[in-house]
């Protein structure tokens, strides 16, 4: 479970303002953050990664406090269990594909490098440098590198933005497959509606640093598991909604009857569409 509450003064497209967010993410979920340029999408990823410090806020990941303004806790990026795929991939040009992926690993994690090279379709490129790869291949290396330490949180900043249709399709399939295999809680920032529809099980739409809409959406993973055990039920004061967290999905409603539900109960989900 990831709880994020932050206030961050910044300049938006429409002028100066505050990025103000209160979001809870279920473990193993894949959440897309969408919105116009300058709405604060990338800032959320940077705050979660510890690359930016908000003026106020609290970030708790699986009961570990990463940031708490009141308690003066602010873990540096090195101490946060994250994988970050940058928009420009940020691959290190002096290292080969294998060395890039193995950069952050310890000796005991070498087999994971081979496993990721194989599953990302990069085994035949292992000994060449990033400059010789196509845009799609570079993004696959960046994704494999971000996952190799088995982070608790995977942050993807517009990974498809510079790719052609074929490369986008391949990367989308790889991302879906790795997410299914590794089950890493993922936040995807994207401009492309198709990416969001194909991948995300929750979509948060931002506008000038505020949540405009926050919707769970149907995808293949949730459709195949209609019965869900309630892991946690709580009331989101900011949104004035009841929230149910299961292992794979988060449900929200303003229906007051939800207060009768308890953790451990099973809910049967019926999808219409």
């Amino acid at each position: 479970m990831i709880d994020l509450t932050v206030t961050f003064p910044r300049l938006f497209t429409e002028g100066p303002g505050n990025l103000q967010l209160a979001v809870s993410l279920t473990s193993g979920s894949l959440t897309a953050v969408v919105g116009p340029s300058g709405s604060g999408k990338t800032t959320i990823l940077r705050v979660l990664a510890g690359l930016e410090t908000p003026s106020q806020g609290r970030i708790v990941v699986d009961d570990q406090v990463w940031l708490d303004h009141e308690q003066r806790i602010n873990l540096p990026p090195q101490q946060r269990s994250i994988g970050y795929v940058f928009q420009d991939t940020a691959l290190f040009p002096n290292l080969t594909v294998r060395e890039n992926i193995a950069y952050a690993t310890t000796r005991g994690q070498r087999t994971q490098v081979d496993e990721l090279l194989e599953s990302a379709g990069l085994a035949s490129f292992a000994s060449i440098r990033p400059a010789q790869l196509s845009g799609g291949q570079r993004q696959r290396v960046a994704l494999a590198r971000a996952l190799v330490r088995r982070p608790k949180l995977l942050l993807l900043d517009e990974p498809f933005s510079a790719l052609d249709d074929d490369a986008t399709d391949q990367l989308r399939q790889l991302l879906r497959s790795l997410h299914r295999t590794w089950g890493t809680t993922t936040i995807l920032v994207s401009h492309h509606k198709a990416d969001v529809q194909a991948l995300a099980d929750r979509v948060i739409q931002l506008s000038q640093g505020r949540i405009l809409t926050d919707q769970s959406q149907l995808n293949q993973a949730t459709l195949t598991t209609p019965s869900q055990v309630i892991r946690q039920i709580w009331f989101d004061q900011a949104q004035q909604q009841w929230v149910i967290d299961t292992d794979t999905i988060q449900l929200r409603s303003v229906n007051a009857d939800w207060s009768l539900l308890q953790a451990g109960m099973t809910v049967d989900l019926t999808w219409y569409g």
Partner: peptide
């Protein structure tokens, strides 16, 4: 800057980042 930041998110200190990247 993203090279440095990528290295930090991969758990490396500024000194390790300086020498290796």
């Amino acid at each position: 800057v993203s090279w440095r930041e990528a290295s930090y998110t991969l758990g490396k200190s500024p000194t390790q980042t300086l020498w290796r990247v």
